[in-house]
Design a protein around this nucleic acid. Structure first.
Lengths: 365, 365
DNA sequence: GTTTGAGAGCTATGCGCTTAGATAGCTGGT
DNA sequence: ACCAGCTATCTAAGCGCATAGCTCTCAAAC
């Protein structure tokens, strides 16, 4: 790799000062047309590419936003780059059926991330995505935060304390509902309303009486969904479950245990209303393994609207979040705060949609 | 936003020099444990976050890689951030069936991108993703290139000339088959072998004789697939189609026209072997609209293995690329070149797998 | 008692760019 | 002939960090 040419090289070649070179790129109107041509030509000939580091340092702005990705699946993230590449010349293998891949991607966060990307580009920003990798979250976060003008993060990925320190310097937007009073921006969806409407559907249309809520309710979004569920159950005059069905190790990993336990206690409800699609899918798998039919024996619903829910049979009934829109809204808020600093933190709520499919007993199409 | 504290602020507070602050972070072994504590405490209290711009400038390395995203769908990318967010308090709408979203995401490139991300993080790099937005490709590319230590790009997104200039400064890897002799790295899949195997399947298992290849064959990957198709057809002693079925405006957009034309000429083949999944899906839609049944009247196959192919009925038979792996391999190559400069360009080919599903006439499961 | 050498920390410089303010070259009015 | 008012360009001062090379301290070695 040759040493990269700098403004100095371009300036020398074009016979102007470095200031003119800089202006030729950033303030075309401040430079006479002819000299601008001169500079640009010299730059092209030398293969000059301005250093964003230097610009960021001098200007104080990087024109990049950051996103701390949510790493839901560290196991898979740890696979080395060359696994599977061992037999480059072997005959192609026939692989009749595998939807396993789509169980892991794209998830909720991936679609939100896409929204973040698209909006960043539309607004002329670059996007820096960071992930945990092997380092601890705080290190990675600082790494990203040091490179960008604003930061978007997924819920429950960063300690509030750390977040506050960063929000003190650059705008930060969290893509989840607001927890307590914080000085961070938020993009949320209508968790309560969505889950309430879905639950009402089960009660009114499918005449189900014995509904169970499944999922970890620690996250604030999940808690809101549980709240929406209870509101619907209460409004229908049904018995309100004290608590959600869950497992300390996570519903997804221990779906079999949960199902086995309910079966043993002959306590299978008429419907499993799950806090997330992923939990619903894991539960449907577990139910299938022990021969419980969905939706015949029991209805199952999710929340999010991930692609995997459309691939499985029965298709998952769920509440679809406007994921791309959430990402876009987050970026919109960040850029807004950059353009007009010292604004109070914003909280923007987006609507959701109910997607009635097969797993609740509906016959779509 | 308060002004961000710098090494100077931290140094002053900790009562040391800025060099010590810097060392405390980057070369922990060079400062005494106690002073390191002192510095880190001061840093934490001030909310110090090192500026990556400054570090990049001083050190010459950014520890970030770049990816120029492929923007297959500029229309959708142009939607503003607040569309749809207008009625935040309205009741959730019921939306019985919509898989439209998954027609656009995730596509082939999105899954590759995910591989790039995961591998970057695993290796301790951040990833800068750039997209066209409104600016022209060259501008955006320079913007990204100026920020990173290495660059990954999708095929046919950047003029070779521009690429060469950048590759002269930082390692570049293109995720497609190598076109001519160029000095950039490549990650490829076995386009020829995969398409040949799939075509053979149609000929041998389904006893089809009249096969048509559909798709733009300008891209080098697509050309290889066409080549694999012809090889299989020739080996079976069948008539080799002179050229692929295509349309100047793109198969995807003009699938209806193509189908209408074939129908009018009564020239419907027994199988449409498409160069990409997206083209296959567009074709299947067009066929459905005019009442041609798949796979009853005609078989259809794709290439890529995108999620949307699993969502439609019939499920699309296709050749699955190891997309995540491609992304990982690209990063692997880049980091390798960074660690050991002045190596010759690499080209790594990955194997593919045939996914036999419903659209070719198979009965999976 | 003097010398050596190994820490431990500091000084000083430069990375490549932006930009405020200085300067030089014109035009046109008086 | 002189000055005001432009315009086009330049000079110079950082931006925040990394690091080579230096200084200082103190203990071990002679």
């Amino acid at each position: 790799m040759a040493k990269a040419p700098t403004v100095y090289d371009v300036a020398e070649r074009a016979g102007v000062s470095i200031a003119t070179v800089s202006f030729a790129f950033r303030r075309p109107e401040k430079v006479k047309e002819s000299t601008r041509e001169l500079v640009l030509t010299a730059a092209r000939e030398l293969g000059y590419v301005p250093s964003a580091s230097a610009r960021g340092l001098a200007h104080g702005r990087t024109r990049a936003l950051g996103l701390l990705a949510f790493e839901y699946l560290l196991e898979s993230a740890d696979q080395p780059a060359n696994s599977g590449a061992s037999q480059p010349d072997s005959a192609p293998l026939v692989d009749p059926d595998s939807d396993e891949d789509f169980r892991h991607f794209p998830l909720y966060v991936d679609e939100v991330q896409r929204g973040v990307e698209l909006e960043c580009w539309r607004r002329g920003y670059a996007l820096m995505v960071g992930g945990r990798g092997h380092a601890n979250t705080e290190t990675v976060l600082a790494d990203i935060a040091g490179r960008v003008d604003g930061l978007a993060i997924f819920p429950n990925t960063v300690p509030a304390e750390v977040l506050r320190r960063i929000a003190w310097r650059i705008p930060v937007v969290e893509m989840s509902c607001k927890s307590d009073q914080d000085e961070i921006n938020h993009v949320t969806v209508d968790n309560v309303g969505g889950m309430r409407a879905l639950t009402e559907h089960l009660i009114v249309e499918h005449r189900l009486r014995n509904l169970a809520f499944v999922g970890d309710t620690a996250g604030s979004d999940q808690a809101e969904r549980f709240q929406g569920f209870r509101a619907a159950v209460r409004a229908a005059g049904l018995r309100i479950p004290r608590k959600a069905i869950a497992h300390p190790g996570g519903v997804i990993r221990y779906a079999d245990v949960i199902v086995g336990d309910l079966l043993a206690r002959r306590a299978l409800p008429e419907a499993f209303v799950c806090a997330t699609d992923q939990e619903a899918l894991a539960l449907m798998d577990a139910l299938a393994r022990v021969g419980v039919r969905v939706p015949g024996d029991v209805a199952v619903t999710g929340f999010d609207g991930i692609a995997a829910g459309r691939i499985v049979r029965p298709i998952l009934t769920t509440v679809r979040q406007p994921m791309e829109l959430m990402g876009r809204a987050a970026v919109d808020i960040l850029i807004d705060q950059l353009d007009r600093p010292d604004q109070p933190p914003v909280s923007r709520q987006l609507p959701v949609r109910i997607a009635l499919q097969e797993s609740c007993g509906c016959q779509p199409k």
